[in-house]
Structures are given as C-alpha cells and as structure tokens.
Amino acid sequence: MERDDFIEMLAREGFQTTVLVEHEAGASLDDHAHAFEAKALILEGELTLGVDNIDTRDQPGDVFHLRANETHSERYGPEGVCYLVGRK
C-alpha cells in the first residue's frame, strides 16, 4: 500500500493520531499490549509480530493491525524498521 492511500484509509476509519516509529536493527520487545488500537504501514525494514503464538513478518508496503490491549511481541529486522502508525 502507498503512504498517501494509507493516510486516507486511517482518516476514513477514524484514526486521529498518526506517528512515525523507528526501531533499531535486531532489537525486540517481549509480550506487551497497548491501550490503543493501532494500524501501521511498514515504510522501511522489517517487523515480525507475534500474536497468539503466530509470527507474521511485515515488510515495506505491508499493513498490520492490532486491537487495543492485544498482547503481542515485536522483533525488528537486520536493518531495523520504520513504520507509520495510526492510533485510536
């Protein structure tokens, strides 16, 4: 998905806050949750999300969605990751 299309989709779906997030290469976060719903577009690098014992690898152009309070883990690829995320 393209960045402009993603931003339009977020607006249609009621995501009011948009944040650019970057994580360094090879870093990770163990299981955790956020109080907000998140939908993100990978811009650069790679992110592996672990949800319900299933890992999903996302790369540039991929979109991922997490429900509010959904427990997940994160692993960042060999070049790190940069993504644009809408929160609500």
Rank of each mutant, 00 (worst) to 15 (best):
S73G: 12
G14Q: 05
F36Y: 10
H65L: 08
E74R: 06
E74W: 11
T48G: 13
P78T: 01
A11D: 06
T48S: 15
T56L: 11
E70M: 09
L49R: 05
P60M: 03
Q16S: 09
G77Y: 09
F36V: 06
N69L: 14
E24L: 05
E70H: 10
D30C: 03
V63E: 10
D62S: 04
D62H: 10
H23R: 07
V81H: 11
D62M: 02
R12F: 02
L84D: 14
R57A: 15
T17F: 14
A11K: 09
E44I: 06
A11I: 00
G50Y: 10
E13H: 07
E13I: 00
D4R: 07
A33I: 04
G50P: 10
F6K: 02
T17L: 15
T18R: 10
I42H: 13
A33Q: 14
D31L: 12
A68Q: 14
V21C: 10
Q16C: 04
H65W: 14
G14F: 09
D52E: 13
D30I: 02
D30F: 10
E2L: 03
D5N: 07
R67A: 05
A27C: 00
T56I: 06
E13Y: 13
E22R: 07
V81C: 11
G86W: 08
N53M: 07
A35C: 08
A38C: 04
C82M: 03
D55M: 06
F64T: 00
D55K: 11
K88W: 11
V21P: 12
H23E: 05
V21L: 10
G86D: 03
F15D: 06
A27V: 00
H34A: 03
H65F: 14
N69M: 14
T18V: 14
K39E: 01
A25C: 01
Q59G: 04
R3L: 13
E8I: 02
Q16T: 03
E74N: 09
L43Y: 08
H72F: 11
